[in-house]
Amino acid sequence: MSAAMLLLLFVCVLIAALMVALAVLWRRLKPSVAPLAQEKALYAGFVADVERRLAAGDLDAAAADEEKTAAARALLKAGEAATGGEVRPVYGYAMLGGVAVLSLALYGLFGHPQLRDQPFKTRLAGWTHTAKTNPDALSPQALALVLRQGREGHGDDPAFWAFLGRIDMLAGNNYQGAQDYEKARALDPGHFTHWSELGEALTFVANGNVGPDAQAAFETALAHDPKDSRAHFYLGMAAAARGDYAAARDHYQTALADMDAHDVSRPMVQQALDGLAPAEKAADAMKARIHAMVASLSVQLKDNPDNPDGWARLIRSYDVLGDAAAKAQAVADMQAHYRRQPAVAADILARSQAAVGAEDTGSSS
């Protein structure tokens, strides 16, 4: 953070403290209404008591007037005490106006958008010097900018792009990192060995989803090195996502077996492995529920085959279950029932391809 920004921050804090102080001062010195009102109530009660005693003959008129006069003097003194510390509104407005003017003046000096920032070239030069003397002191974002200056001199070196890809990934520049690895691969396709890093970058670009390109990169990485823990981990993620828990477990266990005991990634892989059992249990429970729904729907269609919606749900359900044989039989039965209505059969097949959740599988028609 530049010195100008630090100064601006300090001034903002100072102005805020001044505003709080003014508010407190105003609160303390504003007219105190409650005590004066209490004195007036006491005075009214005292006068009423004097009138009562005068009417009862316990007090003559001269004495009553004297007591009323004394009470009135006491009330006037109480009023003077209550209003003596009042801040006149004009002074309060003047103080607030002064704060506003001071704020605008300071903003004009330090905060307006047209102020020039520290030139990027100056900052980059400083980062470059630090990279040569103490690179560990630089953030990955700054180091990536420093390294990118070497594109002209090292643009044909695949090792340069591979290293830049690692730094970009550390800096959170996932898309840029994927491009770096792609450049390294394009420059030396026969000797490119950073397949798992490329796959990881592609996975990050896809928000954690192992897409076809990323999966192909990981599989190529294992073809080069069967002990590539990174590739095993992400292929395990892909297997778990598609419900192949046996394959996912195998990938995670292989990754852990080949990782160093102190590898910082071990807890993440272990957590993924531990999470397979409850996920698989939940998936099995869902499959059992779907099987029960499908069985019930199949029975309903045998009793009442004239049900286009039911046939569409049944065929779609077999797709969800991955039972190709049962799906083919259901399609054949449906087409046999609607052999005189080919348009209805075609519509059922079209609707069976709709992306509807499994929870609709067993709804009755």
Rank of each mutant, 00 (worst) to 15 (best):
M5G: 07
I15S: 08
M19K: 01
A23V: 15
A23C: 07
R27E: 10
S32K: 11
P35Q: 06
A48D: 15
L54Y: 13
A56K: 09
T69K: 04
T69I: 12
A70E: 09
V90H: 15
A94D: 10
L109E: 11
P119D: 00
L124A: 09
T133Y: 07
P135E: 12
P135G: 08
A142M: 05
F160Q: 03
F163T: 12
L170N: 01
N173G: 05
N174G: 05
Q179R: 08
F192N: 10
E200M: 13
E200C: 13
T203F: 13
A217Q: 05
D225R: 08
D225A: 10
D225T: 12
S229A: 15
H232E: 07
A241P: 09
A246I: 03
D260Q: 09
D263T: 12
V264T: 05
M268Y: 08
Q271C: 08
G275F: 12
D284V: 03
A288D: 12
R289L: 03
L297P: 11
D303G: 11
N307W: 04
G310E: 02
R313D: 03
R313E: 02
R316H: 11
G322C: 02
A325Q: 04
A326W: 03
A328N: 03
M334G: 01
R339L: 13
A345W: 06
T361N: 14
T361Y: 04
